[in-house]
């Protein structure tokens, strides 16, 4: 399990820039949800692919 922040030391401050930016969809979101997504963008792991790959757990009960 590697550390996402450690593996991308060059861009620690920018949480979202790494994701490709596809064209905005026409679908308009519900009221307030846009703001929530913006807020969540700020807290998401920097490298989603690496984060998902490294999240491995031992089986439990």
């Amino acid at each position: 399990m590697s550390d996402q922040e450690q593996t991308r030391p060059a861009q620690p401050a920018d949480e979202v820039a790494e994701a490709p930016q596809p064209a905005k969809s026409d679908t308009s979101l519900a009221d307030g949800l846009d703001d929530i997504l913006d807020e969540i963008d700020e807290v998401l792991e920097t490298n989603a692919e690496e984060f998902v790959k490294s999240y491995v757990q031992k089986g439990g009960q």
């Binding site: 994701a19 596809p22 969809s25 979101l29 519900a30 997504l37 998401l44 989603a48 692919e49």
Partner: peptide
């Protein structure tokens, strides 16, 4: 909402994240 905003399909790692 993410899928709609960013045009992600279900296989996108960002959805799993």
């Amino acid at each position: 909402a993410y899928r709609a905003r960013d045009g992600m399909d279900w296989g996108d790692a960002r959805l799993r994240a």
